[in-house]
Design a protein around this nucleic acid. Structure first.
Lengths: 332, 332
DNA sequence: CTGAAAGCGCTTACAG
DNA sequence: CTGAAAGCGCTTACAG
């Protein structure tokens, strides 16, 4: 900037004025300044700017990973919205590790104005114990109490609706694929499992233990193996609620191989609406949180929180939608 | 920092000394400074630090997207290695758009010290025309000439080796699944297609046009449909080289459904080694670039380039490996 | 072992 | 319409 000012023979303030369109600058002066900027390849130093503005227009996005559909979709939405807002996104994969989640919230040495965290392991107690945390918003299926704003998807409610849909379509015995055997906990799987039980209870039924099929992970292969196992064990069922889309794809596969018609004999619904869901045959009914509005709300909450770290905390729930496709159609 | 210094009754320099472990500080003084830091929740302002150091220890990672296995794997490696180096990563999805790729290289207003770009659309000519670009390293399958360092995977060579493997295993007619019908171009698909043709030529064979099966995208469904189409058309083949793993999974599926034994009747090989490759049945033989060393080299090159923007450009090729699994075994 | 000064590259608040 | 000064929060180079 000094260089530009000297080249044109004006003060740095004048250069600053033309760069930021602040103050008043004569047309001729502005033109010469612009020419010098062009020629010298001058770029305002964002660090120096930030030092004054006390802001970097950067946000840290901390997710357990990018492998799962939910996270990948959320990241994509955050990137797109942030870009439109003129803010950059620093990615910080936490691996779901508690220590790293806390580290992110401390934002030691971090340049970003605040952090968006999808908490996997961190507890309410951890959050309370955090001294001088960075401005942060928690987002995702887990709703953790604590001194932070939050945007949560209603996974339990979503699962409940999905089960209701399956019951409406005539299902009697619904497998919970990838589900938790024990009630309790606040992982996405636990929340969805709770919704499953709630819907059954509301319909005056009980969750049969032999219909809860846990899986090691959430891959196609896991889904395939689990359904395969049920069939081999002679377990009867006429519907599957898979807690992740890939599990459902594996299930479809296993059912087809075993000669079961979907949806005629077995209805299948799942979560996430990943790319394959629309293209599989049959098309897969999925329950999907409105990820975009989740990203939007989180970014907005964080922006407010950066401006005003005091004030009441906000917790917002994001709506979900059921996209019904062939896998649950009832041909009456 | 001012506050801490005042609280303890020392100068800012002394505080700076204990924070950075520079200079000499008395044990007692250091202890009191540390206590004050703790109590006041003081954190060094990274902006002010960066302003002096002329560095932010941040790097921009610009990829077309995170959807494909290659990109996702690369991103994961970059995150991990960067974290270990103490550098943060700003994600910048380009969507493969030329304008956005150029914008990233200009790094206007960007806080990062440099950029890692996986170029999709940008041409050598574009790069030459770039005035005052940020320090940058190009990485990925495309090797673009221009005033930048580069780390490239040898996709053509990798495809050539894969074809040689299939020939060794007794294949005569190898389908190029997801391949380009016309030679030329420098997209990954084009490069791999070129390797396919080269291997066949080296073996004294020709690439039969009916064996090149283009696909709209690289999903499982695309692979399934394409192989299905070939079978329906009565095209004879005894091997498939799929340019992306998901295509191969679709192919395996289609082959099984049609009653073909893999590898007994048809051998299948693919690229990328995605998570499913090891777990599919049969296990999928894939050719995989050493993504980690690609990330490592790119980060190192960028670090050097940030320190010294002049000097000769470096272009390094990253090795690839063939992981052979059941899908190409020959039961002699 | 500790401090006062200058400076990183910009902006803000005030003069003229 | 333009400039000189002070300051953002730190570090570097020099004194003592």
């Amino acid at each position: 900037m000094r260089d530009v000012a000297d080249a044109v023979g004006v003060s740095v303030k004048t250069v600053s004025n033309v760069v930021n369109a602040t103050g008043q600058v004569g047309d001729e002066t502005a033109r010469r300044v612009r020419a010098a900027i062009e020629e010298l390849g001058y770029r305002p130093n964002p660090l120096a700017r930030g030092l004054n503005a006390r802001s970097t227009d950067m946000v840290t996005l901390a997710l357990p990973g990018l492998g799962h559909g939910y996270c990948a979709q959320l990241a994509a939405e955050v990137f797109a919205l942030a870009e439109a807002d003129g803010v950059s996104v620093v990615m910080e994969p936490t691996g779901g590790d508690r220590e790293r989640e806390l580290e992110v919230l401390r934002n030691r040495g971090g340049l970003s104005d605040g952090v968006l965290l999808m908490p996997a392991s961190v507890t309410a107690r951890d959050l309370e114990g955090l001294a001088f945390p960075a401005p942060a918003v928690m987002l995702g299926p887990r709703r953790v109490r604590g001194p932070f704003d939050g945007v949560a998807s209603r996974d339990a409610d979503a699962a409940e609706s999905a089960v209701r849909l399956l019951l409406d379509r005539g299902a009697e015995r619904i497998v919970l694929l990838g589900g938790e055997r024990e009630p309790g906990g606040d992982s996405p799987a636990a929340l969805r499992s709770a919704g499953y039980r709630r819907a059954l209870a509301a319909a005056g039924r009980e969750a049969a233990p032999d219909l809860v099929a846990g899986t090691a992970a959430s891959s196609r292969e896991d889904g395939h193996a689990a359904i395969r196992g049920l069939l081999d064990d002679g377990v009867r069922f006429d519907a599957v609620l898979a807690l992740e889309d890939p599990l459902a794809h594996g299930a479809l596969h296993a059912l087809r191989a075993a000669g079961f018609g979907v949806p005629r004999q077995v209805r299948v619904a799942a979560f996430s609406n990943d790319d394959d869901a629309a293209y599989s045959v049959p098309g897969l009914t999925t329950v999907t949180a409105d990820i975009r509005s989740m990203a939007r709300r989180a970014l907005d909450l964080l922006a407010s929180r950066v401006l005003n770290s005091a004030g009441p905390r906000f917790h917002v729930d994001v709506p979900f939608t059921i996209i019904e496709r062939e896998s649950t159609f009832s041909y009456a």
